[in-house]
Design a protein around this nucleic acid. Structure first.
Lengths: 118, 118
DNA sequence: CCAATTGTTCAATAACTTTTGAACTAAGGA
DNA sequence: TCCTTAGTTCAAAAGTTATTGAACAATTGG
């Protein structure tokens, strides 16, 4: 771990809610939840926003304590802090993710055009 | 009912999350939840913010579909839209409220100085 | 070493959100 | 009718968040 993360007990409910209240960040969290345990690198999310903007949103998620970002080589491996969130706010993440499933207007990773490699 | 409210299916998850991500509004929702079924008028929340500012926050809650405001005489009777929220986002409201219970840094209704009447 | 890849930082701007005070409306009571 | 109570509206100011592009840093493969 290289970048600053809050400890579990520093995670604040209003900040988490506000951070999840952004559709781009909610899409990132949904995707991480769907691939639980598999660390993602930022490039996975490039269909949601520009590289710079992603960096911004991923920093917000990290600073809020929603994700953990570990520097590995030139990549960042991003994971959901599910244990910490579940301990701190039981049931919250699950209900948010379940609610997001039902919403067909929400952006999601892998929804954009897929490039077929030659 | 007098003021514009979204229908249950118009309630949007990111908007609800963003609206609940404000400590003042979260305090209002917690209080409404604790007095479930008892309609409140705005004056109940005057220790959280100024009258004008409350009007703003209560409008946000109403427009997001979190509360219902009914005009009765010169008052507004405010209630939590628990049925609609539970139908739309099962478990979400409960987990948010439960999480807020644990947070002693959050503002809450009835926490400010109480004036003793003469 | 050089170039490519991966992502960050910075400054600028755009776009919202929150807060405020003064002015207002509408209802209810004296 | 006049006054009070309850809350809204409006415009301005302040503050915050999101988005952008250009420049940067660090790692890795050739």
């Amino acid at each position: 771990m290289s970048l600053p993360h809050p400890t579990a007990d520093q995670i604040s409910l209003p900040i988490v809610l506000a951070v999840l209240g952004d559709p781009t960040r909610l899409a990132i969290v949904r995707y991480l939840a769907s691939k639980e345990g598999v660390p993602m690198n930022c490039s996975k999310f490039l269909d949601l926003a520009s590289k710079t903007n992603l960096s911004y949103h991923l920093a917000k998620l990290r600073e809020a304590g929603v994700t953990r970002s570990e520097a590995v080589g030139t990549s960042r491996l991003i994971t959901l802090r599910r244990d910490d969130l579940d301990k701190r706010f039981p049931g919250l993440l699950d209900s948010v993710i379940a609610a997001a499933e039902g919403d067909k207007d929400l952006p999601a990773v892998g929804t954009a055009e897929v490039e077929v490699s030659a």
